[in-house]
Nucleic acid binder design. Structure first.
Length: 561
RNA sequence: GGGCUCGUGGCCUAGUUUGGACAAGGCACUGGCCUUCUAAGCCAGGGAUCGCGGGUUCAAAUCCCGCCGGGCCCGCCA
């Protein structure tokens, strides 16, 4: 499965050997990709030429004369570059044969027998999910799918903050206010209480005091109080789950923050750090080295209750017992917190491996989204809008039953939202614009789904017999397609190792784009037997890989669109 | 003020980790392609001092320094 990368490595090794032998020079050779039409790999000889004080032609010729690898078809000297044309077509024989035999399974990496605990989303259950933090579930869930493919066992967590101030505000609102609403979805109905309570809070000391009391009860571990709260928070959480389901996001575990208090983990953390703790006005802290400076990290308030940070330590210790690698998908605002947490954990337990993936908020042209202030675009509304647009687009093209229309418009509309957010690098700040969020053309999920449907349609008309030989491949478009297909394992590896799910989107788009060119330039069904079967093989390979990519991105892949 | 981060055609993005050949795509715009496997597509075209200024290098969007602009963070909040 890794032949293409191996070919590259073997050329690099061979070049290093030849340069050593011929010129007695030890250099590390890194091949790069030349511009279109100039071969497959390029070796820049600048360093070598400088050392040897010879012309590129002279040095190039000497290298070419001593290089003898089956995989190389042709070598050209172009300026100070040595361009390698690789005979990679034969690689496609085994690749496609394996796809035929094992299907998508052949695309999975070997099991690593390592478990990843992946926490993402973890939005406060005080209102519906909004687009501002909408990147979190999309990045998180794509990582889950990607890392599984890459050979990890993955357990996903949603950390439910039921111990915090935000939750207490909602609880106060629900228990003390009366608000009429005909919102059917409970997260949308209950957020009104949260917003109203926040409003009251601003200029009413009494309200503020009552909320403090709720928080206090929780943090002291009042189980009655906690139980009542959860009933309310769960309603909001269920609304959030519904939204997540629409974009194909699901979790293994919902972990309630207050469990850490009730079950004693917080106390354990405090006990284990007690010897290092110092006191200040009745509160306790430890000192942590941060960029050479000592920083106070408070763990216990002067009223004896724990802080979010303390509970987060406990939670990460718990996660470290459940898996080998902890990955958190976090908003950029958590950066300092997360770094501090890693430092503290090092003090408590050795060898905890944590990787944090940060993303920037999606904002509105008029500023940051805020549930409290009501300046938000809810994910539900965006999804609804996208579904409607998908319906319109479908009806422009075909007449189908209402049932099919509903199904298809969700698969196209919801996916478009997921893709349009996923495709952008996490840390890039993103200003929400309806036009971009609802993009259905070019670099978009309908484009991918469309190319997939085209492939599917061909195979439906004429199933592939399974015979394929790269000898029959000669068209430019066919070769580009094979080349792109063979890159698949490298892309999965790169995206997984660097925890960059958007790399999958980029690759999938390029692949679909190349397939569309192939589709236009290389008719399949009307060719003679050999050519037809070979092209069917290519279409099959494309279809299988595209399906796999779409699944990895959590995007639906209807057979026809 | 300090720290982190982003800045690429009118708009959006890839490329930055590991420096290399004319900076690659999408949207929008202009023109062409459906009696032939789905035109959500394909082809062609115009449009970029890669925020600014220095430096390192044979070679800088990429590395280093300074500056400018946007975002985030600097709690006994979460």
């Amino acid at each position: 499965m890794f032949e293409l990368a191996n070919v590259k490595k073997s050329i690099e090794k061979e070049l290093e050997r030849i340069i050593q032998n011929k010129f007695s020079i030890n250099i590390k050779v890194t091949l790069e990709t030349p511009p279109e039409g100039m071969g497959d790999f390029a070796f820049p000889m600048f360093d070598l030429l400088k050392l040897l004080k010879k012309s590129p032609i002279e040095v190039g010729k000497q290298i070419i004369d001593s290089l003898d690898l089956d995989s190389i078809k042709k070598i050209e000297i172009s300026g100070a570059y040595l361009n390698f044309h690789v005979n990679f077509l034969p690689l496609s024989d085994s690749f496609i044969r394996e796809l035929k035999e094992k299907g998508k399974e052949s695309l999975n990496f070997p099991k690593k027998n390592k478990k990843v605990i992946l926490e993402h989303t973890s939005a406060n259950p005080t209102g519906p999910l909004h687009v501002g933090r909408g990147r979190n579930p999309i990045i998180g869930d794509t990582l889950r799918r990607l890392l599984k493919k890459y050979g990890y066992d993955v357990e996903t967590h949603y950390y439910v903050n039921d111990a915090g101030r935000q939750s207490a505000i909602l609880i106060y609102g629900v228990e003390n206010l009366k608000i009429e609403t005909n919102e059917k979805k409970e997260d949308h109905a209950l957020v009104l209480f949260y917003q109203k309570a926040n409003e009251l809070l601003e200029n009413d000391q009494e309200v503020s005091k009552k909320i403090e009391e709720i928080m206090m009860d929780i943090e002291r571990g009042d189980e009655e109080r906690i139980k009542r709260n959860r009933e309310i928070l769960l309603k909001v959480l269920n609304g959030i789950k519904e939204t997540l389901k629409m974009i194909n996001v699901e979790f293994d575990i919902f972990y309630w923050e207050t469990d850490l208090i009730i079950q004693g983990q917080v106390k354990k953390v405090i006990d284990s750090l007690r010897s290092e703790m110092k006191e200040e006005n009745g509160a306790y802290y430890i000192e942590i080295d941060k960029d050479g400076k000592n920083e106070k990290v408070f763990l216990i308030r002067n009223d004896g209750t724990s802080l979010y940070f303390t509970r987060d330590i406990a939670y990460h210790l718990l996660k470290s017992e459940r898996g080998d690698l902890i990955i958190n998908v976090l908003g950029e605002d958590h950066k300092p917190h997360a770094e501090l947490l890693q430092n503290v954990l090092k003090k408590i337990k050795n060898g905890i491996e944590i990787k944090n993936v940060f993303y920037s908020f999606v904002s509105l042209p008029e500023g940051r989204m805020s549930t409290r202030k009501g300046r938000v675009v809810y994910l539900d509304d965006l999804l609804e809008e996208s579904r409607e647009k998908a319906k319109e687009e479908i009806l422009k093209r075909r007449n189908i039953s209402d049932e099919k229309l509903n199904d298809l418009s969700e698969k196209i509309g919801f996916s478009a939202v997921r893709y349009n957010i996923l495709k952008i690098q996490n840390e890039k700040q993103l200003v929400f614009k309806w036009n971009d969020a609802l993009n259905f053309e070019g670099d978009s999920s309908p484009f991918l789904q469309y190319s997939y449907a085209r492939a599917n349609s061909i195979l439906k008309k004429q199933p592939w017999s399974g015979s394929f030989s790269s000898e029959y491949i000669m068209e430019k478009a066919e070769i580009s397609l094979i080349k792109q297909i063979l890159l698949y394992p490298d892309v999965i590896e790169n995206a997984s190792e660097n925890l960059k799910p958007y790399k999958i989107a980029k690759y999938a788009y390029d692949l679909a784009s190349i397939f569309n060119i192939f589709y236009t330039e290389c008719p399949v069904l009307k060719e003679n037997y050999e050519i037809r079967e070979n092209r069917l093989g290519l279409v099959f390979a494309f279809k299988t890989i595209m399906e796999d990519l779409l699944e990895t991105m959590g995007i639906d892949h209807p057979e026809e669109i």
